[in-house]
């Protein structure tokens, strides 16, 4: 059963896919699969092992399910300060 999610992109991922966000209809069962699907589409230079993932403004595990209406953000290595 496919679900619809919003994916927001920041920093290097935003540059690589050329957009700040997109609506995605996906059959991915977990966030890792969702990233794999989007990485195949956008050819991201960073792998899942270099990223963290947040859903609805909370850091979550890659194996969490992809819920209808979720806002998903893949977090590249940070460099604040």
């Amino acid at each position: 059963m496919p679900v619809n999610v919003t994916v927001r992109y920041f920093a290097i991922l935003k540059e690589e896919c050329g957009q700040a966000s997109e609506q995605v209809r996906t059959n991915a069962t977990d966030l890792a699969s969702l990233f794999a699907e989007l990485s195949a589409k956008h050819h991201f230079s960073l792998g899942q092992d270099q990223l963290r993932v947040a859903v609805n403004d909370s850091f979550v595990d890659w194996l969490e399910a992809v819920d209808e209406g979720a806002q998903v953000v893949f977090i590249p290595p940070v460099a604040g300060g």
Partner: peptide
Amino acid sequence: EIKMRLPIWKKETYEDGISEWVNCQHTGQQ
């Protein structure tokens, strides 16, 4: 903690005109 944990990214521009997202270019050090 702010440097380590906040989702903030930095892009540096160098004198040779190249720009890079810090910590995102060298794999294996993340």
